[in-house]
């Protein structure tokens, strides 16, 4: 495999993490004349929370590292060092829980929901799109697909709201929100698993329905381009069956840019799923972020944002590393 390709991708990943992390540090400090974190901590100390004692300690620690008396480069180094150790400080709102603990509790929910619905949407959408770009596909297919295509640019959570109203509020077929029945303890029983699946259906469905159209649309374009390629024409001249041409020649090649598209859209998809979680009060990172924003819990916000950037960077890297397995031109490039 071409090692230059791998090195490039890994470097890009590191660059993404570094730039992203630095943005979290510098952007808030661009705000004129105030450190919102210090301000928030000051407010808390003044009003006196429940855990005043611990909070005071935290404020002290924060001042020591990031106080205005420290030069900026030193604050930056302190900050980068903390991030590298996944030390995001305490949650301001849920002290004494740390940001890391809370995020870790939320991650499995988000990953589960996201992975299943994205893979489903990608697989179904690509197949539908390939069929839409295939001249032999019956006309009905186009009629059936059009509403999905129209929804391809609609944010997931907008569909989520509509589905929630219809299926959960009106017909009461599915739960209105949450990740499992309130108060249940996670156990490895069929009952619990079913409960989780039951709760995930609506949020997942809203992501799949919107995603299918998106992938179908781009796959249709790729498919049309691929069908114009000489090797497809020659495959027909060689007498291959339409089925063979569809799968092995057209779709197989059209899926390549589609995979690149998946890597490029990782951020948009994750952002979309976070918002779906907010709407459905799903116990993943989205809800954590939402609560952090409404509660001015800055450490929490920065922690979640860091993880989001890390996750998207890692997913992109993974897809970039899988890509050569699909495309021999990169796998066997002699450069």
């Amino acid at each position: 495999m071409s090692s230059r390709y791998i090195v490039r991708r890994v470097l890009l990943f590191l660059l993404v993490i570094w730039v992203g992390t630095s943005l979290i540090f510098f952007l808030p400090r661009l705000a004129p004349d105030r450190d919102p974190v210090a301000q928030r901590l000051g407010n808390l100390a003044a009003t006196g929370g429940i855990n005043t004692e611990g909070l005071d300690e935290m404020v002290e620690a924060y001042r020591a590292k990031f106080g205005l008396d420290q030069p900026l480069w030193k604050q930056y180094l302190n900050y980068m060092f903390d991030m590298l150790r996944f030390d995001f400080n305490y949650s301001i709102a849920m002290y004494p829980a740390t940001v890391f603990e809370i995020v870790m509790r939320a991650v499995p929910w988000t990953v589960g929901l996201l992975l299943v619905s994205t893979l489903l949407a990608f697989a179904i959408g690509s197949l539908v799109g390939a069929l839409l770009g295939w001249p032999r596909t019956p006309r009905v297919m186009h009629w059936v697909a059009t509403p999905f295509l129209m929804m391809s640019s609609v944010p997931y959570y907008i569909l989520g709201l509509v589905m929630m109203y219809v299926f959960a509020f009106k017909f009461k077929w599915l739960p209105l929100g949450g990740g499992s029945q309130y108060g249940t303890v996670p156990t490895l029983t069929w009952q619990y698993v079913w409960d989780v699946v039951h709760h995930a259906i609506l949020p997942a469905a809203s992501m799949v329905v919107a995603g299918v159209g998106f992938w179908a649309l781009s796959m249709r374009g790729m498919m049309v381009t691929t069908l114009g390629e000489d090797y497809v024409m020659l495959a027909e001249a060689r007498g291959l069956s339409p089925r063979r041409i569809f799968f092995r020649y057209a779709m197989r090649n059209a899926i390549l840019p589609q995979t690149t598209g998946l890597a490029l859209s990782a951020g948009t998809i994750l952002s979309g799923s976070l918002l779906v979680e907010v709407i459905f009060r799903y116990p993943g990172m989205g809800s954590v972020l939402y609560r952090a924003i409404t509660g001015f819990d800055y450490f929490m916000i920065y922690g979640v944002v860091f993880f989001v950037i890390l996750a998207v960077g890692a997913a992109t890297l993974l897809l970039d590393l899988i890509y050569p397995l699909l495309d021999p031109r990169i796998r066997y490039s002699r450069k």
Partner: peptide, 14 residues
């Protein structure tokens, strides 16, 4: 049978 123009990418790259 057809033998295509040489300039074409007549073989499936994958």
């Amino acid at each position: 049978s057809l033998i295509p123009q040489a300039a074409m990418n007549s073989l499936n790259p994958v």
